[in-house]
């Protein structure tokens, strides 16, 4: 910083011991835990949706009610669709899914800008259909997954609550 530049002080809600980590690339464990939380959320949404359908069937025809069933590939397809939609919308709007929010992570482009719709959708599809790509985080010195390398994105620690990138 030049001597004549005014001194800038940033107020941050981030606890003192975590401030040094902010903006650094997140590692395998944090990202895996976040993904597991997101997977749980998607499954919960599907379960709630199934219960809603059951309730609707019960209300319309209570006498001949039985739990509706669907072909396995249809259920899997629906789950994948819901997951892709969920990831894409979250990453486009706030850069973080529920799991990312709990773990204090944020998904951005390499230059720190938020993802556009196309990139968010591609990343969501790539992460959902090829989750093993996350393992590359452990190998990559820059902690990039396969998805990050292909789509030029990054996942950083960001405990701040605002939508802008945290600064140290």
């Amino acid at each position: 910083m030049a001597a004549d530049e005014p001194k800038r002080v940033w107020l941050t809600p981030v606890p003192e011991e975590a401030r040094a980590w902010q903006g650094r690339s997140a590692g395998l464990v944090s990202r895996t835990v976040a993904s597991v939380l997101d997977l749980g959320l998607v499954l919960a949404v599907l379960g709630v949706g199934y219960l809603v359908v059951c309730g609707a069937v019960l209300v319309t025809d209570p006498v001949r009610f039985h739990f509706p069933s669907a072909p396995r590939h249809a259920v899997v397809g629906l789950a994948i669709g819901v997951a892709i939609l969920y990831f894409a919308v979250c990453w486009r709007i706030s850069g973080r899914t529920y799991g990312d929010r709990v773990l204090g992570l944020r998904v951005t482009r390499r230059d720190g800008r938020s993802l556009g719709w196309a990139r968010a959708l591609l990343r969501a599809a790539f992460c959902t259909l090829f989750p093993v790509g996350l393992v590359w985080v452990a190998v990559s010195p820059a902690r990039h997954s396969i998805q990050d390398l292909v789509l030029r994105t990054t996942v950083t620690y960001d405990w701040s609550t605002h939508t802008r990138m945290a600064r140290e």
Binding site: P15, E17, A18, W21, A26, G27, L28, V29, S30, V33, V102, L103, G104, R143, Y157, W159
Partner: peptide, 11 residues
């Protein structure tokens, strides 16, 4: 907060 810190250390 504890989960985050522990995860970062595990990373």
């Amino acid at each position: 907060r504890d989960v985050r810190v522990q995860s970062m250390r595990a990373d």
